[in-house]
């Protein structure tokens, strides 16, 4: 085990541990903060793997933008700030079984497949610098880059359209005559189908009850 191996295992423990905390914690704000820890240690792993530019982009976009956006979402949906026990759904056990099975299959396959796979990390130093990546991005990958910019624009416009309430289709107006509810009595196949008018008996009774309440 080289030093890089040890460092990446330690960072991996932090990454996976905080990832498990993200999906396991009972406080929704803590989940966002554990997400910061997970993304940060992942960025450190990128630095160890000599991909410095990706590491900085990870810090800037994930830690800087995505987590802040998620925290805004937490705030705007009035999520429970304190401890809440209803963050997990009923199929928790099934989810746990599926996740453990996926982890077992993936880890077994990867360990058996890459047991003897080594690569010289020292020879890769510098291949992840911003100069190298930038040159590659704007020479070889410039067409996907441009397509991605169009996609970002589309996502921006879509988010604006979705979050503005004064554009788009107008809200459906209240139906002046709501369809009659199925009655309890006389609900046979030949029951009278008649919309309930304001002069019906039970409507008036209900209105009186409302007044009393």
């Amino acid at each position: 085990m080289t030093t890089a191996d040890i460092v990446i295992v330690l960072l991996g423990v932090v990454t996976v541990g905080s990832g498990v905390m993200v999906v396991g914690t009972r406080q929704i704000v803590h989940a966002a903060l554990w997400l910061v820890v997970s993304f940060g240690s992942l960025a450190a792993s990128y630095v160890v793997l000599a991909a410095e530019f990706v590491a900085w982009v990870q810090v800037l976009i994930y830690v800087g933008a995505v987590v802040v956006l998620l925290l805004f979402g937490v705030m705007l949906t009035r999520a429970p700030i304190g401890r809440s026990d209803d963050l997990d759904s009923g199929n928790r056990i099934v989810a746990l079984v599926v996740a453990v099975a996926a982890a077992a299959v993936l880890v077994t396959t990867l360990v058996r497949g890459f047991r003897d796979a080594y690569f010289p990390l020292k020879a890769r130093v510098g291949t992840g610098s911003s100069a190298t990546i930038g040159a590659s991005l704007f020479r070889t990958w410039v067409l996907p880059f441009e397509a991605l910019s169009v996609l970002l624009l589309a996502a921006l416009i879509g988010a604006i359209v979705l979050s503005r309430s004064d554009i788009g289709p107008k809200a459906i107006e209240e139906d002046p005559e709501p369809p009659a509810r199925p009655r309890r009595r006389g609900d046979g196949p030949l029951a009278r189908r008649r919309t309930r008018g304001p002069d019906d008996e039970d409507t008036i009774v209900l209105a009186r009850i409302d007044e009393e309440v």
Partner: peptide
């Protein structure tokens, strides 16, 4: 550098996300 460590970390992180 051993390849197994980072890919196993990635697999575990993915499983946490699946859960």
């Amino acid at each position: 550098m051993h390849l197994v460590y980072p890919v196993v970390i990635a697999a575990l992180l993915f499983s946490a996300g699946v859960y």
